[in-house]
Design a protein around this nucleic acid. Structure first.
Length: 287
DNA sequence: AAGAGGCCCTGATAGC
DNA sequence: TGCTATCAGGGCCTCT
């Protein structure tokens, strides 16, 4: 599901709801996520106060008031759901929650606060949660990740140096989190379409101008997607159950055999596989 | 040592 | 109440 824009949407909506709140209880229904959740996890989180929620790349980060953290990665199919305790609950002291959009299966982790809880749901279990002791450990955990497209360090000099003698195709580089972090399979195709670059182009063959376009459109596409609340294909929703809208602006993703949307281009969108990931492009204007 | 490919897992859909 | 194959927003690991 989630590339950088979708995780950013989750971060923003979580921040409005759980900032400065204390974790009352953790309930784990299934520990077997991407990495097994250790038995001590509940004790490590309970009674900590969420100072704020931040994000790096596709990782959500609960920042606790004592300087520790909890990483949340949503993998391919993870979602987070906010459940408010119903007012009725306060009166009757039952455990009735108001939960219109909560899936029936795969609700693996519950984080309870005083008046609400958030639930981590993940059918494929490619995501994970991990407690991190301190700032240095967090920095170490992200050590292998390249800059986000928004960073100043994601610039022409960086690309030209990185692509020197690199035969790998540009589509794979956009998905390579060591090179640039936060872009996933949807936005990689969209960025290359806007840059008019064929996804199979060897990185070392890219001109200076093409590198500039990649930098520019990486920033603008992700920024626009965030403004539109992310992309909702299949099941992405924000934590209140609302869809994003960027999928309505897809130029190539999931548009196989449809006409190219570029002004005056008469091409059709093709779907190919690159490193086992579907890749969409116009073979007329992305030569 | 860069780069390709497999694998972790469930669910939706298409084709037979 | 059909089966089977294919594909899906990610990232880590192994092999060459």
């Amino acid at each position: 599901m989630p590339e950088l824009p979708e995780v950013e949407i989750v971060k923003q909506s979580l921040n409005q709801k759980i900032q400065q709140k204390k974790i009352k209880k953790i309930i784990i229904k299934n520990r077997n996520l991407r990495f097994k959740i250790p038995l001590k996890f509940e004790k490590l989180l309970e009674n900590r106060i969420v100072k704020k929620v931040t994000r790096f790349s596709k990782y959500l980060i609960l920042n606790f008031s004592d300087g520790s953290f909890c990483l949340i990665h949503l993998g391919m199919s993870g979602t987070i759901h906010l459940i408010k305790k119903n007012d009725l609950n306060k009166l009757t002291n039952t455990s009735f929650y108001n939960s219109p959009s909560l899936p029936k299966k795969h609700n693996h982790v519950e984080i309870h606060f005083k008046d609400l809880k958030i639930i981590y749901n993940d059918p494929r279990r490619f995501g994970f949660l991990k407690f991190i002791n301190n700032k240095q450990a967090l920095i170490d955990r992200f050590d292998h990740l390249g800059p986000e497209p928004f960073f100043k360090t994601f610039n022409l000099k960086y690309l030209l140096k990185y692509f020197l003698n690199k035969k790998k195709n540009i589509k794979s580089f956009l998905l390579d989190q060591k090179f640039v972090s936060g872009i996933g399979n949807i936005y990689a195709s969209e960025i290359l379409f806007l840059s008019r670059i064929n996804p199979k182009t060897h990185a070392m063959k890219l001109s200076k101008e093409e590198c500039k376009k990649i930098i520019f459109f990486s920033k603008t596409v992700l920024k626009r997607a965030i403004e539109k609340g992310g992309s909702s294909i299949r099941d992405f929703k924000n934590i209140s159950g609302e869809n994003g809208n960027f999928q309505k602006e897809f130029k190539v993703y999931q548009r196989e055999n449809l006409s190219c949307l570029r002004n005056k281009c008469t091409g059709k969108i093709k779907k190919i596989s690159i490193s086992n990931r579907s890749t969409f492009f116009c073979n007329t204007c992305q030569k």
